[in-house]
């Protein structure tokens, strides 16, 4: 009774809060990235966990207080691997992603696929009991902060200058990685033709019916997981201002998944990275290519904002 009553909010403030309550979900990419980093915790074999550690640790460590189960030594290795664009040197990462496909990827992108079902409490998904039983429950390990890639003096240039080889999307991503470089989408201003089919395949936000339990679906999921980890690394690098490091990851993604599921996301990130690097012309060119290739993309607004980024 002696409690003060809570007064109603002023109208203008109430409206602000209402808008905040309507905040849309964060991006699927972001969600998948975090989930991938939780994989070592929630139950994957040690080997696979290492794989996740490698990939997730690439450019993600600044400001990290705890990152579960990132094996210190492996992370160091990854830092070196990522710092170098040359394929042989990045074997560590490739190996990591390859391991990732073994298990961690399943959860990650299964969840991408099933994301919309989550609200309804659907609990289906790839069964990973075996993995769960061997769950590692590591203590948070101090993350070895990867050095800014020393080879990243070049990668900014390496991005558009990538060899113009088109290749079909590798059936199993990690194997495809070793196959050789492929062309990033928009480096030379003439966007690669993209079949409607593959364009639909890109849509991570409308992943389609969930229960495609074929082998190709598994591969697809693994690819998506590996892709999202790479892009997550790039996004986080950008977030802390490490543009060169971001460009390395983006270039790697472009080479590895020229027609990946997250191509649009990559291109938007690339445009932002180029803009932040002060490479106005490249950013514009790349954005123009994006608009030609994906005229109806949901990312167009994000692209416009990316283009506005100031160094």
């Amino acid at each position: 009774m002696n409690r003060p009553a809570v007064e109603p909010l002023a109208e203008d403030i109430a409206q602000l809060f209402a808008a905040e309550r309507r905040a849309p979900r964060p991006s699927a990419l972001r969600e998948a990235g975090v989930f991938a980093r939780l994989q070592p915790l929630v139950g994957v074999t040690a080997a696979v966990a290492t794989g996740v550690g490698v990939a997730a640790g690439t450019s993600a460590a600044a400001g990290t207080t705890t990152a579960p189960a990132v094996g210190g030594g492996v992370t160091t290795g990854a830092a070196t691997g990522v710092g170098t664009v040359a394929l042989p040197a990045s074997k560590a990462l490739i190996a990591g992603v390859a391991l990732l496909v073994g298990g961690a990827g399943l959860g990650t992108s299964a969840y991408l696929t099933l994301r919309d079902d989550a609200r309804k409490g659907v609990t289906s998904g790839p069964t990973r009991e075996a993995a769960a039983r061997t769950a590692v429950s590591p203590r948070p390990a101090p993350v070895v902060e990867p050095l800014e890639p020393s080879a990243s003096a070049e990668p900014a240039e390496a991005l558009p200058a990538s060899p113009p080889i088109t290749a079909p999307r590798p059936p199993a991503a990690p194997m495809g990685v070793a196959a050789g470089p492929t062309r990033p989408l928009a480096g030379v201003g003439s966007p690669p033709a993209r079949s409607p089919a593959s364009a639909t395949g890109l849509r991570t936000r409308s992943p389609g019916p969930s229960a495609r339990a074929s082998a190709s679906a598994v591969e697809r999921r693994a690819d998506m997981a590996a892709e999202s980890i790479l892009l997550e690394g790039a996004r986080r690098a950008l977030g802390r201002g490490a543009v060169d490091a971001a460009l390395v990851d983006l270039d790697k993604h472009a080479r590895t998944y020229p027609e990946g599921y997250l191509t649009e996301e990559r291109e938007v990130l690339s445009v932002r990275a180029l803009a932040l690097a002060g490479r106005r012309e490249s950013a514009e060119r790349r954005a123009a290519a994006f608009r030609r290739t994906f005229p109806r993309s949901i990312q167009l607004e994000a692209l416009a904002r990316a283009l506005d980024a100031k160094p």
Binding site: P26, G43, Y111, L114, T123, G125, T127, R128, E129, A132
Partner: peptide, 21 residues
């Protein structure tokens, strides 16, 4: 944790990621 499926955690994650974020 011990001996239970991690799918359940996954479900929880999916449902609550947005809220936590």
């Amino acid at each position: 944790p011990p001996g239970t499926s991690s799918i359940d955690f996954e479900t929880l994650f999916r449902q609550q990621f947005s809220y936590v974020f």
